[in-house]
């Protein structure tokens, strides 16, 4: 799988550099924006940026027929899917690291910042990015990467939907719960991870039968 991971990274390298640049610039936001309620959004977007190019990467693989060539390599089809999911997880982890810089900076520049915001920031980012990946892979594997921008949009909507639904369901048990509370946040992340696992098995099934 190592070779496939390296291939994924080489092919996403220029996009990742771009994302890194943007995310690092966003790290500086707490210097200019002293309003703590914006911080979760900034952190969330920073993490999400790292999975935004998932679709374009798959499209490049499709048109060059690398995705067909891969099948002839001495790797099982399952390994190909493993490499894709692991690559995305690594990218999300990088996003989390970058958003940590924002969190640190904002605790310095904004006095008495409510740590709930920071926790929610992570949860927002993780939910958004994990659901995007969970949504995009099986769909693109099934119908192809041509409409990948549209699919990305739908994935965003899906992610937000997951969060809203989680928040709504939790509020049935605890009427006072805020959307941006850590409880909602952490529950959303757990739900997202479960959806990712589901998505992984779905992708394996789809890819197994896929013809190139």
């Amino acid at each position: 799988m190592k070779g496939l991971l390296i291939n994924n990274f080489y092919s996403m390298l220029s996009n990742v550099k771009l994302t890194l640049g943007m995310a690092l610039i966003m790290t500086l936001a707490p210097i200019f924006i002293r309003e703590s309620s914006f911080i979760p959004t900034i952190m969330g977007v920073q993490i999400f940026l790292f999975v935004v190019y998932t679709g374009t990467s798959l499209q490049a693989d499709e048109s060059s027929k690398w995705s067909k060539f891969e099948i002839t390599l001495p790797v099982k089809r399952k390994t190909i899917i493993n490499a894709k999911y692991v690559s995305s997880i690594i990218l999300i982890a990088i996003g989390v690291l970058i958003s940590t810089l924002t969190a640190i900076l904002s605790s310095i520049t904004i006095s008495n910042i409510n740590t709930d915001f920071l926790v929610f920031g992570y949860c927002f980012g993780l939910t958004l990015s994990i659901n995007t990946v969970a949504f995009m892979y099986p769909i693109i594997l099934k119908i192809g990467a041509e409409k990948n921008e549209l699919i990305l949009l739908l994935a965003c909507g899906f992610s937000l939907g997951v969060m809203l639904l989680t928040s709504f369901l939790l509020s049935l048990f605890n009427h006072g719960i805020k959307f941006s509370s850590p409880v909602v946040g952490i529950t959303s992340v757990i739900v997202s991870v479960l959806l990712l696992v589901l998505s992984y098995f779905l992708s394996i099934q789809i890819h197994r039968k896929k013809e190139f």
Partner: peptide, 20 residues
Amino acid sequence: AVNFSPELTPKKLSNVMSRI
């Protein structure tokens, strides 16, 4: 077809293949 990911160089491709 092109066969390989468009963003790779032949050198990088060899790094990939040597591990596969």
